[in-house]
Amino acid sequence: AEDTGVRVELAEEDDGKKSSIALRLWVEDQKKLKGKYKDSGAIEFTFDLDTEVPETVAQEMVDSGFFLEIDVKIVGKSIRDRVSLIKWRRQRSTSAHN
């Protein structure tokens, strides 16, 4: 995935079954963000792989004051990339079983 400066990782082991997973997001490279970033640490949250949209979570982070509106796209993309990878891994694992 592209280096967006925003890192998103699983905050728990993926059992491959639950649709709701815990993710952890933090800024690795502030220079990649357009807005001035207030270093508030790692943000942990749950995300539903089936029903939720990464960009919506990014907007909630903006609304909560973690990021500025100008960076909502880069945060959304960072979450989307990680979610895509998790889904891809799950699909691959399912295919391997069959």
Binding site: S40, G41, A42, F45, E60, M61, S64
Partner: peptide, 27 residues
């Protein structure tokens, strides 16, 4: 010392905690 801060937004819970030193730069 590393107490987490909890922020609620539209029903979602964000838990904020310090980033472990080892995770700051992995590349």
């Amino acid at each position: 010392s590393s107490a987490a801060q909890v922020v609620h937004s539209a029903g979602r819970r964000f838990i904020v905690s310090p980033v472990p030193e080892s995770r700051l730069r992995e590349q």
